[in-house]
Design a protein around this nucleic acid. Structure first.
Length: 769
DNA sequence: CTGTCCTCACTTTTT
DNA sequence: GTGAGGACAG
């Protein structure tokens, strides 16, 4: 029986929609259809790569709505914003279904929303700040300093991981410090004061009205544990719960899901244990392996037909994953054609690898008529993108990069956003520390230290110190005055939070705080780019303001605090524009999960890189790397190319590398005879088109090098006693040269600026004699 | 307090 | 090869 209250309405509704219902259900295969129609009770869908996992989720949601369920009674959780967005679009496509009121989003964004609604229950302000990784690490660093601990022992990243792991296992600071086992672990690691740091970190976050990423899950659990009424309220709202990528859930997420679904038990999880690649973030593959035990009476559906890839690719993927011992057996198969064999490219250096990939892309575009947007280059680490980018640029191949340093993590963006944060939540200590002296206004480090000491002794935020304890900080009159000017400026911004719309206030802050001027004056390329980034952010605020005005028509919803609500949860992917169509995609394999491309290049298949060096010590981590490789190759629809280099630059040094063990795990019969690529002499001379293209390719290279050469200093012409002119320091004489290659330095006596050491690689020196 | 130069750590992967 | 934090001089 359907658990809907209004049964009569439901029946009528079904009859009226018979046509629609049959039409969309007919688009599913038998396994998918049963997974969609099994509406009640716990359901697990084990979906092999490319087997229509998203299809099942979206059709299931559409189906629920067609059955008469209100969209706001459905909770659908994903891991990335991208997945959530795609799902929304696809549901709308199926039946023009109203999706606006669906509770659909990432774990973090949905729980942030709930936490804002219920913040007071756990003593937080509803406008709490969300600390990103940069804020968190910076706070941890200052705590380590305050405790007079060695920063080399208590590295922020390491401390962060430890605290993050604790929160993902629902261990509060208090619980951490009374857990003998955990404390013993810390002692063994020679870091016995981690618990103390955690305690301090927790209380500082609380005083600042801030939550980090992990808190969004952790505090949601606290909320539901502390207030059964709140839990029951949300249990009642979320009558149907769907979870994407269930194999990647951690303990905190698992607990929330379990609690929320306890009343109605309508929980549907979709996942593939073979694609579990987030254990470093606390994901526990046991969650999917134990679903049937955790949720009694669960039905399981297996989707094993792959619609995405050729037989060769599917078979290669199966062969790879077969090397793992812990997995749920599945028979992924496809009725697609065999397709071309997998290509393997071997090159001498990482730069050659980039060139080889670029050359192959030109081939693909020419022979197979692939569009650029059909092609993706996937790599293990973000650092690998550089060689690829360079080669693509030189060949005029348009590309877009996902990931790397997010737009919102750039210094200038964080600076401006910190002003916004401070306006909304002046207790936000990380924001305050960032901007109290930016642009420089004479409030330096020692002053800030005094404020921090006072905030510790008075057990309050720095903002409260400024407002109530400033006189007892031992500052001189001038400095106090400067602080008051700053505080009054923030107050004046605050006063306009409700009267101005987001764009007007945002713009006002940018110019009034002096940021725009500061960056405008800087005419270096970096400075110009920073200025442009600020303008872009302001454009974003403007768009938000206009959109909100159009859709809401009320003055309440377009203010800056609304804009700021989930900025911390946004990534680059979210501000992708239409200009990005028809470009080659570059991204890490992790961020490629859930995507598919006709042609895929997986690069950097070298031992110690992929599999990563850090994974080689134990079996489970190596298996995760292998699953990652599985994810990589199953992104490909038609052609798959794998490449590796014999040498690779790492930290400015050349490293030799062996081919990845994963290459030898690929069945021989699925691989094209291996070809090696030599950047100087290009093989395969038979195709006239290729020759033509390649001669272009070479000449393009030449042109670029001609263009770029004069901009750099010709270090061969640099000799002792030579007279030179520097862009900034003017004329001077070289008195000595040392170092080799990129680290070659010249000691120069300048007429007006004295003796300087100049790195030839960067200096723009003109030779006068 | 400010600006500049130097050192050093950074490389898994994301919200 | 880079960016951020620290040391140091003005």
């Amino acid at each position: 029986m359907f658990p809907f209250r209004d049964q009569i309405y439901l029946v009528v509704y079904i009859c009226a929609n018979t046509y629609i219902m049959t039409s969309y259900l007919d688009e599913l295969n038998p396994a998918q259809k049963s997974a969609v129609e099994a509406v009640n009770g716990p359901v697990m869908v084990l979906a092999g790569a490319g087997s229509g996992k998203t299809r099942v989720l979206t059709y299931r949601i559409a189906h629920l709505i067609n059955l008469g369920l209100q969209p706001f009674n459905i909770l659908a959780l994903t891991f990335t914003n991208k997945a959530a967005k795609e799902m929304k679009e696809r549901i709308e496509k199926i039946g023009g279904t109203e999706t606006r009121n669906l509770w659909m989003g990432t774990f973090h964004s949905v729980f942030a929303r709930i936490l804002r609604n219920e913040a007071s229950t756990i003593g937080y302000p509803s406008n709490f700040t969300i600390y990103d990784t940069i804020d968190t690490k910076s706070l941890l660093r200052s705590i380590v300093k305050e405790l007079n601990l060695d920063e080399k022992v208590y590295k922020p990243g390491l401390v962060y991981n430890r605290i993050s792991a604790a929160k993902n296992n629902l261990l509060s600071a208090a619980a951490y410090n009374s857990d003998e086992k955990v404390l013993a672990e810390d002692k063994v690691m020679a870091k016995p004061r981690l618990g103390e740091i955690y305690t301090r970190y927790e209380s500082k976050c609380f005083k600042s009205g801030a939550m980090d990423f992990d808190d969004l899950l952790f505090k949601t659990n606290v909320l539901f544990t502390k207030s059964p009424e709140t839990l029951s309220k949300y249990q009642d709202i979320f009558r149907f719960i769907l979870v994407d990528e269930y194999q990647d859930t951690n303990f905190a997420q698992y607990n929330i899901i379990k609690k929320l679904s306890a009343a109605h038990k309508n929980i549907c999880v979709v996942g593939d244990d073979a694609q579990s690649i987030y254990s470093f973030r606390g994901a526990d593959i046991e969650n999917i392996l134990n679903f049937n035990k955790d949720f009694p009476g669960a039905q399981t559906f297996k989707l094993e037909q792959n619609y995405r890839s050729t037989k060769n690719i599917v078979n290669a993927a199966n062969a790879i994953i077969d090397n793992n011992t812990s997995q749920i057996k599945k028979e992924v198969w496809t009725s697609n054609e065999d397709g071309t064999k997998i290509k393997i490219i071997k090159t001498r250096t990482d730069n050659d690898e980039g060139k080889a990939v670029a050359a192959s892309i030109l081939d693909l575009a020419l022979q197979e008529q692939y569009k650029h947007s059909d092609i993706a280059i996937l790599y293990r680490t973000n650092a690998q993108s550089r060689a690829m980018e360079e080669a693509l640029r030189k060949n005029s191949i348009p590309y877009k990069i996902h990931g790397g340093l997010s737009f919102y993590q750039r210094k200038e963006i964080k600076d401006l956003l910190s002003y916004y944060r401070l306006i909304i939540n002046p207790n936000d200590e990380e924001a305050l520390k960032r901007v109290i002296n930016y642009p420089a206004r004479g409030i330096g480090k020692s002053t800030l230290d005094k404020l921090i000491i006072s905030s510790n002794t008075n057990d309050c935020s720095i903002w409260e110190v400024i407002n109530t304890h400033l006189s007892s900080c031992g500052l001189n009159k001038g400095t106090s005055g400067k602080i008051m000017v700053f505080a009054n400026m923030i107050l004046s911004f605050q006063a306009e939070l409700t009267t101005k719309n987001a764009y007007d206030l945002g713009n006002h802050v940018a110019s009034h705080a002096g940021i725009l001027k500061e960056l405008f004056v800087d005419k270096t390329p970096e400075g110009v780019s920073r200025y442009e980034n600020i303008q872009e952010l302001l454009n974003g605020v403007k768009q938000f303001t206009i959109l909100e005005e159009l859709s809401e028509g009320e003055a309440s919803s377009k203010t800056l605090d609304v804009f700021m609500e989930d900025v911390a949860l946004l990534t680059n992917v979210d501000n992708e524009t239409d200009e990005d169509f028809d470009k080659v995609t570059l991204m890490t394999i992790h961020s490629a999960k859930g995507l598919e491309f006709p042609a895929v290049f997986v690069v950097g298949l070298e031992e110690n890189l992929f599999p990563s060096q850090l994974s080689l010590t134990n079996r489970t981590e190596l298996e995760e790397e292998r699953r990652l490789f599985y994810v990589a190759i199953t992104r490909a629809e038609k052609t798959l190319t794998i490449s590796y280099a014999q040498t690779r630059f790492k930290f400015g040094n050349i490293n030799y590398a062996d081919p990845s063990r994963f290459i030898s795990e690929l069945p021989r019969e699925l691989i094209e005879a291996p070809s090696s690529y030599n950047a100087r002499s290009i093989s395969k001379p038979n195709n006239p088109f290729l020759n033509q293209k390649k001669s272009n390719f070479v000449s393009v290279n030449k042109v670029t090098s001609l263009v770029s050469a004069p901009a750099q200093t010709n270090s061969a012409l640099m000799k002792e006693n030579a007279l030179v002119e520097h862009l900034r320091f003017g004329k001077g004489k070289i008195i000595s040269l040392d170092g080799i290659g990129p680290s070659k330095k010249a000691t120069i006596i300048f007429d007006k600026h004295g003796t300087k050491q100049i790195l030839l690689k960067f200096a723009k020196l003109k030779i006068l004699s």
